[in-house]
């Protein structure tokens, strides 16, 4: 296996809850609760889970768009979580982000070439001719027509806007890109175009992705390994094929069985695991295992002791008492 580019250890992100006239701290939302994992050089790590599980917060905390409550994040050997502001700024070019909503993440008052050139102006000493050349190169790379360089974001469709966001993320030759639900707002036929582009760019530029998504089918298509999150914790992390063909954690099993299959014959016969109830609030997670309130295989120990996230088989990590037996 290749080397780890990103090493996340005990990453914790709690948001304090304040209440009352004095705005006293009354509790904390444990959005991300002690994650440890590696992202290998050149791989795509899929991070899946349902809304509110903390997957986006994880992506943002890794890039230090939030200051983590605890833990460390090493990207290419540098601990991002403890850098001071000026060193952090120097480290920014190598790590970038592609956002879900290209409408909200592109400045409507800037045209395409200004948007793509902005990181170049901020982080390099390029003159305007060099910047223009780089912008054209990036537009070609993501399949945007050069003739549209002076158009504004609203003149583009959702898929094309996402291409602008990708070109901007690539401007500074990053090594590592966090893709936060980059296709969730797009139609199916456009999703495939953007995913193919991301895969081509990865191959050509040797990029490493953290691909955050709730779309389990798409993650199966493009991830090398997959991490499944539930209520602020990773419950399972495994190579793609192993995870999809033989999920170990009961939550992964339920999640995969809930995905509708576009085939009436399969739908008519397949057995689904329908989970009861809702996800508990991350401000008040249950005692013991976070999944114990909905787990179909819950045991007594699960309500008392939180299972440890461990490697049970080579490359297969999970946090479940069933695996500890």
């Amino acid at each position: 296996m290749s080397e780890a580019l990103v090493e996340v250890r005990n990453l914790t992100m709690h948001f304090d809850i304040h209440a009352g006239i004095l705005r006293r701290k009354v509790g904390a939302v444990r959005a991300v609760d002690g994650l440890s994992f590696d992202i290998m050089q050149g791989e795509t790590l899929g991070l899946v889970g349902e809304s509110g599980c903390g997957k986006s917060t994880t992506g943002r905390a890794i890039l230090r768009l939030y200051d983590p409550t605890d833990g460390s994040v090493k990207i290419d050997g540098v601990d991002i979580a403890s850098l001071n502001t000026s060193d952090l700024r120097k480290a920014r070019p190598q790590m970038q982000m592609i956002f879900q909503d290209p409408q909200a993440s592109l400045n409507p008052r800037m045209n395409v070439s200004e948007i793509i050139a902005e990181p170049l102006r901020e982080h390099t000493k390029m003159d305007s001719a060099a910047r223009d050349a780089r912008v054209r190169e990036l537009m070609d790379a993501v399949g945007l027509n050069r003739a549209f360089a002076s158009r504004y974001p609203h003149e583009f469709s959702g898929g094309q806007r996402q291409r602008i966001g990708i070109a901007r993320a690539l401007a500074l030759n990053p090594k590592f890109i966090v893709c936060d639900e980059p296709i969730a707002a797009l139609d199916v036929s456009i999703q495939a175009q953007v995913v193919n582009l991301l895969e081509d760019l990865q191959r050509e530029l040797g990029l490493t992705y953290l691909f955050i998504s709730h779309d389990l089918s798409m993650v199966r298509h493009l991830a090398t390994r997959v991490a499944v999150m539930y209520l602020g914790k990773i419950v399972e992390l495994a190579p793609r094929d192993a995870l999809y063909s033989d999920p170990h954690h009961p939550y992964t099993q339920a999640l995969l069985s809930a995905v509708p299959v576009a085939d009436p014959e399969v739908e008519a016969t397949r057995k689904q695991i329908i989970l009861e109830g809702d996800v508990p609030s991350p401000a008040k997670p249950p005692e013991g295992c976070n999944f114990c309130t909905r787990c179909p295989k819950v045991m007594d120990i699960c309500r008392k002791v939180s299972p440890e996230f461990r490697e049970h088989a080579p490359g297969r990590f999970s946090a479940c008492h069933l695996m500890d037996e």
Binding site: V188, Q191, N196, E199, S217, M218, R220, A262
Partner: peptide, 21 residues
């Protein structure tokens, strides 16, 4: 094309997604 472009959660996994240009 819509059916072909969809990645699947089970069964065969395609190396590249079909697109509708």
């Amino acid at each position: 094309a819509l059916l072909e472009t969809l990645p699947k959660v089970t069964g065969e996994r395609s190396e590249r997604l079909h697109t509708i240009e």
